[in-house]
Design a protein around this nucleic acid. Structure first.
Length: 265
DNA sequence: ACACGTGTTATGCG
DNA sequence: TCGCATAACACGTG
């Protein structure tokens, strides 16, 4: 689920509901999610401090802490979510449409911060591909996909010979695009996902850049990549919402890819 | 039972 | 070493 738009939603939730409260306890016992730390390491670094600001680049978040403490890096992996509950236990962030914090097995809470107020921040993940770690290295990431300017986008996108979809998914080139946002963006730009980046002309690069911005912003505004017009039509028997042609499926850039064979030819 | 998967990263190959 | 492709990771879901 989580691509750039979902992560931005989670970041904003932390900003609204979890800053400037003193941390009373941290459950960091999941050694896979908290790797490479050992149990208690993150807890010891955070207890007594406050979260002071929530940042994001692409799909990576990091939260700074008071008294020059380490930053807490959070990554939602493929299925992670952030839930925040108030002192009375009600879900104040992350509980969209009745599916609240109470649903799901307790062991799917992979990392938990309890504040002195009684409020709780939880990293919830049915899988275990989410991650919590201290002082994450975000320097290897490319510029945020929602912010990158045209000149830098062109430079980074068109180097080499990879298929354009694979390049969009490369977090070192551009941070934040996942499989669904890539398909939505390419559909909006009317580009074949298999097109080699070195064959794109200036117009196509410009169109792609604009499509990326608009798809990203729309997804943030509407609450997730699932709201993209073409996303519901990915799947067997799906049709292009513009021209009605049957959607084509193949693996591109190592991921399942759906596109309109007529318009994205 | 088995294939699939919205992310990241180690490994392998030319 | 670079650029790219693939497997592996963990584990629920259809």
């Amino acid at each position: 689920m989580p691509e750039l738009p979902e992560v931005e939603t989670a970041r904003a939730a932390i900003e609204r509901a979890a800053l400037n409260r003193t941390i009373a306890d941290v459950d960091d016992r999941d050694t896979y999610v908290c790797r490479p730390h050992s149990p208690g390491e993150i807890r010891d670094a955070l207890v007594g401090r406050r979260l002071t600001a929530a940042h994001r680049r692409g799909k990576s978040m990091w939260v700074t802490t008071s008294r020059s403490g380490p930053a807490l890096g959070l990554h939602l992996g493929m299925a992670g979510r952030i839930f925040i509950t108030g002192p009375d236990g009600t879900v104040v962030e992350g509980g969209d449409r009745l599916r609240g914090a109470s649903s799901g097995k307790p062991e799917w809470n992979r990392f938990t911060i309890t504040f002195e107020s009684g409020a709780v921040l939880r990293l919830f993940d049915k899988r275990r591909l989410s991650r919590a770690r201290l002082d994450p290295d975000v320097d290897a990431l490319g510029p945020d996909a929602g912010e990158v300017g045209l000149a830098e986008f062109r430079e980074r996108m068109t180097r080499g010979t990879a298929p354009v979809k694979a390049r969009l998914l490369d977090q070192a080139v551009l941070a934040g695009v996942g499989n669904l946002l890539a398909d939505q963006t390419l559909w909006q730009a009317r580009l074949d996902p298999r097109r080699r980046v070195d064959t794109l002309d200036d117009d196509e690069v410009g169109t792609l850049h604009e499509a990326l911005r608009s798809a990203t912003r729309a997804a943030i505004r509407q609450g997730g990549v699932h709201t993209g017009e073409v996303i519901a039509h990915r799947g067997k028997g799906g049709h292009c919402p513009r021209c009605g042609a049957e959607m084509t499926r193949a693996t591109v850039g190592g991921r399942t890819t759906w596109w309109c064979p007529v318009e994205q030819g």
